[in-house]
């Protein structure tokens, strides 16, 4: 399934924000990612992990950030592209949906106008744009789409708004979809329906997807490959089954143990991770996770671990991982 060249290749991406007092806050460090055609990568992490900053920087949505590194989209470095070129790519080549469907939609513009705007800007006729909008909305599970074109966002439920957002991000047939927490604000049954919609749509179009989530369970059935982030760094990545069934990083293990299970006996305590994620600026030398880690030893406070191979495509950034490291070093 994987063609030889990735359509998106992010190398050594680092992002800093300057605070008011002039100090630099590193929110993302040396991030690397390769996305192939049709592949689905889930980027998972808690608040402050850098996942949304990473995703937003692909489309250069963070003008105030200082970033370095390289983002190659089909061979073109987006970090060096003109803003005009980036505008062309947004929507047409790379579509993005955001977490909060209500604040991402224009409250005084009809659903039909908002979705077809993406096409109209690119010179598609009004009639054709409207027809394509109807077809797409129907495909995304909005019943009675022709009559819903003139509705406003407030007339839609949360799940329906999320489908509209999805329609906006894919109507110009991009080759990559970036979905940032698209189901987080939704009720569990609606979440399941929206996930089914995204799953069906992306597999039918063979659409490469980067799915950002704080919830491991939500991505379990959707992703091929999972990247786990913590405090601005990738701590573990690998094929989805490896990450869930054979986690190598104590943080990944801790996240999985923190999820209450419906099968678990209620007498058993949850194995929670102690402490809190360090803020940017309070991230000292060594391993960023060491203060919360029960495997931490002295090395962890003096030396930052590298991202090393532990299995087939499975990488972990830990001095004392739960699985043995392979001998050969990876380039992480």
């Amino acid at each position: 399934m994987l063609s030889s060249r990735p359509i998106l290749e992010i190398s050594n991406l680092s992002i800093d924000f300057k605070t008011k007092d002039g100090a630099e806050r590193k929110v993302l460090e040396n991030f690397n990612l390769r996305l192939y055609e049709g592949q689905r990568i889930a980027v998972v992490g808690e608040s402050g992990s850098g996942k949304t900053v990473m995703a937003s920087s692909i489309l250069r949505l963070l003008p105030e950030a200082h970033s370095s590194g390289e983002i190659l989209f089909k061979g073109e470095n987006l970090m060096l592209a003109t803003s005009r070129r980036v505008s062309e790519i947004r929507g047409a080549e790379i579509g993005m949906t955001f977490q909060d469907p209500l604040s991402s939609l224009n409250p005084i513009m009809t659903i039909g106008d908002q979705v077809s705007e993406v096409l109209r800007i690119r010179g598609v006729s009004k009639k054709e744009a409207s027809d394509r909008t109807v077809v797409l909305l129907q495909e995304l599970g909005i019943e009675d789409a022709p009559s819903r074109l003139n509705s406003y966002p407030y007339e839609f439920s949360g799940g329906m708004r999320q489908r509209v957002l999805l329609a906006m991000s894919v109507i110009a047939s991009p080759s990559i979809l970036i979905a940032d927490e698209p189901t987080t604000a939704l009720d569990v049954r609606v979440q399941a329906q929206v996930m089914a919609t995204i799953n069906q749509f992306t597999s039918k179009r063979n659409l490469a997807t980067i799915f950002i989530s704080h919830d491991l369970s939500v991505v379990a059935g959707f992703a091929d490959y999972v990247v786990v982030m913590y405090a601005g760094r990738v701590v573990e990545e690998g094929p989805v089954d490896e990450i869930f069934y054979r986690p190598a990083h104590p943080y990944t293990r801790g996240l999985l143990d923190s999820i209450p299970s419906i099968d678990q006996s209620s007498e058993k305590r949850l194995n929670s991770i102690p402490g809190v994620t360090p803020e940017p600026g309070q991230r000292s030398h060594g391993c960023v996770f060491r203060d919360r880690c029960d495997r931490a030893k002295e090395t962890c406070s003096t030396k930052a671990p590298e991202l090393l191979t532990t299995g087939e495509q499975h990488l972990v950034r830990c001095h004392f991982p739960l699985l043995p490291l392979s001998i050969s070093k990876s380039k992480g």
Binding site: E143, M195, G221, F222, D241, L256
Partner: peptide, 25 residues
Amino acid sequence: KSLLKAIPTPNPIAERERLSRAKVQ
């Protein structure tokens, strides 16, 4: 029943199975 059925679990094999059966309404 429908609430219970909709809860995602950190179990890729079961979740893939569920997604493939889900109907897009």
